[in-house]
């Protein structure tokens, strides 16, 4: 490449005469145009070629590779950072997942504990209810028994009073014919009706 440039530059030096004439024709014969003072041309061309070669050397050997490496380095750094960001994002997502999982687990555990506690309490309540019902039933039965006793005692008393009263009444109306046994049966039958 560099040799190509040098070749091109040298060839243009050689080919210069013709084009200079062309340029002169193009510009016309304007008096006082220093650009057309051909005496200065070899000097200018010499220094231009030197300048271009120096500049080409400095740029192609130092400046351009350096800028290229800076740009690719930056590209690499950006790619690396993006990758890292992606990695961190993935970690964050994973952490969130874990957090959600833990939350769900905790919630499930809590629900289980609540259910267990409820079941236990229910059992206790059931047991207490059963006990209370049994007691209530026993008391009810006892009360009913006593009521029955009271009732039967009361019926006996009514019968006794009725029999005695009937005997007294018969004695008062027809003394001496009262048959206590007959009266007792009749009264008992009547009371039972």
């Amino acid at each position: 490449m560099a040799s190509g440039i040098r070749l091109a530059a040298l060839t243009s030096l050689l080919a210069f005469g013709g084009t200079a004439a062309l340029a002169a024709a193009e510009e016309g014969e304007k008096a006082g145009m220093p650009q057309l003072d051909f005496g200065t041309y070899p000097n200018q061309i010499f220094w231009l070629v030197v300048t271009l070669l120096v500049l080409y050397f400095l740029l192609s050997r130092i400046a351009l590779p350096r800028i290229a490496s800076i740009l690719s380095e930056r590209q690499g750094a950006i790619a690396r950072d993006l990758e890292q960001a992606e990695e961190l994002r993935r970690k964050a997502v994973a952490a969130e997942e874990a957090y959600k999982q833990a939350l769900a687990d905790a919630r499930a555990e809590a629900n289980q504990i609540i259910a267990e506690a409820k079941a236990e309490i229910q059992k206790e309540i059931d047991a207490a209810n059963a006990k209370a019902e049994a007691e209530i039933a026993a008391r009810t039965a006892e009360s009913e028994k006593r009521i029955a006793e009271i009732r039967s005692g009361m019926m006996q008393a009514v019968e006794d009073v009725a029999r005695d009263t009937a005997v007294e009444i018969i004695d008062a109306i027809l003394p001496g014919i009262a048959d206590p046994k007959l009266v007792a049966d009749t009264v008992a039958a009547k009371v039972k009706e």
Binding site: G4, I5, A8, A9, T11, S12, L13, A15, F16, T19, A20, A23, E27, Q35, L36, T40, Y41, Q44, I45, L48, V49, L52
Partner: peptide
């Protein structure tokens, strides 16, 4: 002109 013509000729020849 000397400078620009050399530059243009260099491009042309290249």
């Amino acid at each position: 002109a000397a400078v620009t013509v050399v530059l243009a000729l260099a491009v042309f020849l290249t």
